[in-house]
Design a protein around this nucleic acid. Structure first.
Lengths: 140, 140
DNA sequence: AATGCACTTGCGAAGCATTCGCAAAAATAT
DNA sequence: ATATTTTTGCGAATGCTTCGCAAGTGCATT
């Protein structure tokens, strides 16, 4: 019986951002909730259109921008390519990239984070975000 | 007395890249040698034109691309903005970016580097290179 | 110093990713 | 229901960067 509560995780995301629940945004939010990778705007748009073919590119970009700005999405810009997105609620992590295989591992080091905060503080700044990438090869 | 040898650091840079010494490239190379910041292509172009007003934008971009590709320049892409360049021979450092002004500060933390090495080691890797960027705003 | 040829140049056009302006359409408030 | 505020899709515009090409230049060789 009991149908699922109508507002799923996607809608919750939109509500958290105090955005009106619209069909295009639902299509986009669902993509983000389901994503297990770090899609860029083009990919989000394309996947969203599988849910609702009428979603426009502009709306994809706009929605991503708002969600990111409100802190519900985290953005990554690996090198010079398109910005990639992921849910901010996912636990924070940095990346260790195997330069030979391209494999990416996630890691967290509280110690490093603490030191980063200290560096920023010494410069009179507070950290809003950071990016740490280790390009490695298997130890011989 | 002794005038400086004509081929200065700029020319040396071009030679290292096995590029023909041309006036536009000299103007650009000099900019890079003199730069104490991390200029983007537009800035490099603009500064190069102070040395030689005829340097074209395309040549600025092309020269930067070649020098970077040959490992003589290091590139940085802070968030989604324009690619910035610096001489590769400069000592290693990480970056603290003021998200409001775009100002970039350099820092080095031996402690952080040591911890990075440890993280890599724990994963069975050794670090070849890394990138650490702190996106900050002035502390209230 | 003149020659030849590959490499470079400047120009404008083209290419991406992303953003904007706007009038129509949808969502909330009244 | 109706008024009010947002949001949408469209296409055009932007910003950074790359390309194609004909004309120009560096440089190894005579």
């Amino acid at each position: 019986m009991s149908e699922h509560v109508h507002s799923d995780e996607g809608d919750a995301l939109l509500k958290d951002a105090s955005l009106r629940i619209t069909k295009p945004r639902q299509a986009i939010a669902r993509v983000l909730v389901d994503a297990e990778d770090h899609p860029d705007a083009e990919q989000v748009w394309s996947r969203a259109r599988e849910n609702d073919p009428s979603v426009s590119q502009a709306t994809a970009y706009r929605t991503l921008a708002v969600l990111a700005e409100k802190g519900l999405l985290r953005t990554h810009t690996f090198d010079g390519s398109a910005t990639r997105y992921e849910l901010a609620e996912r636990p924070h992590h940095d990346h260790l990239i195997d330069v030979e295989t391209g494999e990416v591992r996630e890691f967290v080091s509280r110690e490093i984070e603490r030191l980063q905060a200290r560096v920023a503080e010494e410069h009179g700044y507070e950290i809003i975000a950071h990016r740490l990438e280790l390009y490695c090869r298997k130890a011989g």
